[in-house]
Design a protein around this nucleic acid. Structure first.
Lengths: 148, 148
DNA sequence: TATTGTTATACTCTATAACTATA
DNA sequence: TATAGTTATAGAGTATAACAATA
């Protein structure tokens, strides 16, 4: 196999993995009545606690108008509430409901268990090499201006 | 680093890679006036030649109604045309315009060059190990019923 | 004057259901 | 009777622009 064919095979598998992981994520979330965007909101709340819509807009890198719609959806499906901000009457604080808190915790748990599917029983050295190469590739992409 | 931490780090980097690759793809396509879904149509045409909308619906795994909308968009932006099917007057054949053909070929070319960013200058053994592990992981996912 | 979130409007992707034309 | 593609309708994500309330 030529070097070029090898690299092409690598990109193909990487793109295939992207598609499969995305599809699986969307399906799991749909089972909980969530979309990827709404789950992203829950993720931020889980990591950083109650947030203003402005902060959520910055975190998700979408417009404030978009956040209004996402929170509308999460409120109507019972995952979060809008609370008044204690010090700024312009702002609202988005907080978990009990259902939201449970769901976010369960998703975090599921992600953790997912590592077992990916790496379970794989020789440690192989996992280490894989993680190292991923870091290498992410670094290359960052040099191209591609990062989070 | 514990085995668990290592695996968590691996999943984190994988998910980060998914996000970065998706964002970059969307941005490149937008520069050409394309969305991911519309580009997917061009991709199928590039690989298999002119197709009926029905065949495109099957290939993209979306409803026929959805294909109507995607082709409407691709026609109005000049990437494809609807031609009458030679043997079945119910069906339409979707074909490239010259612009569509050029764009699809350029995208294929760009993807090929992208391998240089990902793997260029990396020791062959390292690339081989990475591609091997990707295949391993895709196999594990397939065992879980997760595949294309 | 600047910021927070909303209303108004528009585009894209997605789906189901009913329908037309054709096989 | 079955298939190809459309119209009708609806929900979700995204954006810009104008606006109200508040800082």
């Amino acid at each position: 196999m030529t070097r070029t064919d090898l690299e092409t095979e690598g990109l193909d598998r990487l793109l295939q993995l992207v598609v499969v992981l995305n599809a699986d994520l969307a399906q799991r979330l749909a089972a909980d009545g969530l979309t990827e965007s709404r789950a992203h909101v829950l993720w931020v709340l889980q990591q950083h606690g109650p947030q203003t819509q402005r902060a959520l807009a910055d975190a998700l890198r979408v417009t404030p108008r978009n956040i209004t719609g996402l929170i509308d959806g999460l409120v109507s499906t019972g995952f979060v509430t809008r609370e008044s901000h204690p010090h700024d009457r312009r702002a609202t604080l988005v907080s978990f409901t009990e259902q939201g808190r449970r769901t976010a915790a369960a998703l975090e748990q599921e992600q953790h268990q997912f590592t077992g599917i990916l790496f379970g029983g794989m020789p440690r050295a192989k996992v280490e090499a894989f993680v190292d190469t991923l870091g290498d590739i992410l670094g290359r992409l960052q040099e191209q201006g591609l990062s989070l």
